[in-house]
Simulated assay, not measured.
Amino acid sequence: MHPELWLVRHGETEWSRSGRHTSTTDLPLTAEGEAVAGSLPARLAGHEFQRVLTSPRLRARRTAELAGFPEAEVSDDLVEWDYGSYEGITTPEIRRSVPDWTVWTHPCPGGESADQVAQRLHHIVDGAAEGRTLVFGHGHALRALTALWLGLPVSDGRLFLLDTATVSILGQERETRAVLRWNA
């Protein structure tokens, strides 16, 4: 079997609901986030995973737990893009001082660069062994991971909108890495 990466974005938090950039702030899931994450076992049923990884952040670990994987291996490589001084701020607020800002095209003062994000996420791509690896993580980081899986620059993660508590599958079609399922 070719390697597959199964991606699960954490359930909803107060900040994800309001569009506030959340990397290092460790927020719990909302009641809605808990309920939707509680539907993950049915969506993952019938599949065997050779490895299960989670970001160390509470929202990702709780989603993994609700999905039926309380013993998921914690990986610092799966933390969200570090937004630096933009932590807790929405894109419209940032754009008041930096017009047209996006995490994909502009720096995050005091945070990570796209190259830094790519460097750590390459560890996840390179560590995907034969079979299935299930990862629990965050919106921008998982979108960047998808771009890297496909051999694209991190900035192309902007092309992959990812909702909370969704399942996406990266794999191969013959010799070519591909998106097998997205945002399900």
Rank of each mutant, 00 (worst) to 15 (best):
D82V: 11
G68H: 06
H122L: 14
R43D: 11
P92D: 07
R43A: 13
L58T: 13
V117N: 00
Q50F: 01
V52M: 01
I94V: 15
R132A: 12
I124V: 14
L134H: 12
E130W: 15
E65G: 08
L134N: 11
D115M: 00
T91F: 08
R95Q: 15
S113H: 07
L58P: 02
A45H: 09
P56R: 06
H106D: 15
F69W: 13
E87Y: 09
G68C: 07
R96P: 07
T54G: 05
L53V: 07
E87P: 05
L134Q: 08
R57A: 14
V52Q: 01
G110I: 05
F49L: 01
L53F: 04
E73D: 14
R120Q: 03
S55W: 07
A72M: 10
P92M: 09
D82L: 08
T90P: 08
E112Q: 08
I124W: 01
T91M: 13
E93S: 03
I89M: 15
A60H: 09
L44C: 02
E48F: 07
R57M: 15
W104Y: 11
A67H: 12
S55K: 04
R62P: 05
E112W: 10
A118H: 03
P107G: 13
H123I: 02
A129P: 02
D126F: 02
W104H: 09
S113P: 08
A42S: 07
D126K: 12
T90A: 09
L53H: 04
D115P: 00
L78I: 10
D77I: 10
L78M: 14
W101F: 13
G127K: 06
V74A: 10
A42W: 04
T90Q: 11
I89P: 07
G127T: 11
T54M: 04
S85I: 15
I124A: 03
R57S: 13
